[in-house]
Amino acid sequence: MILAKNYLSKYGILIALLVICIILSVATPYFFTVQNLVIVLRQVSVNGILAIGVTFVIIAGGIDLSLGSVVALTGVAAASFAHPGAYPLIVPLLMGLLTGVLAGVINGLTITLGKVAPFIVTLGMMTMTRGLALVWSDGRPVTNLSPAFNFIGGGDLLYIPVPILLFVLVIIVAYILLNYTTAGRYIYAVGGNEQAARASGIRVNAVKMFAYIICSGLAALAGIVLAARITTGQPNAGVAYELDAIAAVVIGGTSLLGGRGTVTGTVIGVLIIGVINNGLDLLNVSSYYQQIIKGVIIIGAVLIDRKNGK
């Protein structure tokens, strides 16, 4: 019994994911096919990349609400340089990524040196970057992108869609960063107890900067992938994406108070949201009801986690 309880608290979320998968497999036979599972993975890859990024910030004790808007801005930034025959592929990629990194630098500096609460800073950044995306694109979608660029969102490598490969790559790098590097250890320490981290000689501001830059940088990657997939730099893209990302992180057992959380948890959180979206679509549940169900699951997951923690 105790053993069972231990397993439940350790693997609770994974079990939840499996249970949901089993239910959906029974409810609709199409769910558990290679074809559909690949679709699920491709669908979650953008949210997944975002969720991994915000995991860094949340473990460090912060929050980032600007992700969705950064997705739009970086998508527009990359697309503007991705017209056929305009520049080599590396230029739009760098433009997108640098725009994201810049957003992260501004977030980080305002939070650390300006001492403004992360919620406020990134809320401001959210509307600012959305506005910038609209100004940059003149409020119109940036279309006519090169096939090489679109390949990032729609192409296959070794039969696997490129967005999935990128998502997996991000997972691996993030896992290594958080578990095997000093920077990762410092992120946990700063989120767990900023004062103690400072007293241990850790440069707390630098660690926070690092987390916000990683987060916005990954948002930029997600922005590029999304733009490439819809073959458009869409200034209105990514609205409320930050909330899905944060929800995935929370479902994955990361504490919003900081200091606690894992990449694996976030990945499972992302998959749970993805599988539910996909399953409910397959079952022809109206999108109105889908939102209600998703909300219940987010709160339910955290409730269960809280119970097990005690």
Binding site: G192, N193, Q195, A196, A199, G259, R260
Partner: peptide
């Protein structure tokens, strides 16, 4: 407060 990261 300043000695330990208790959650760690």
């Amino acid at each position: 407060e300043t000695g330990l990261v208790l959650s760690s």
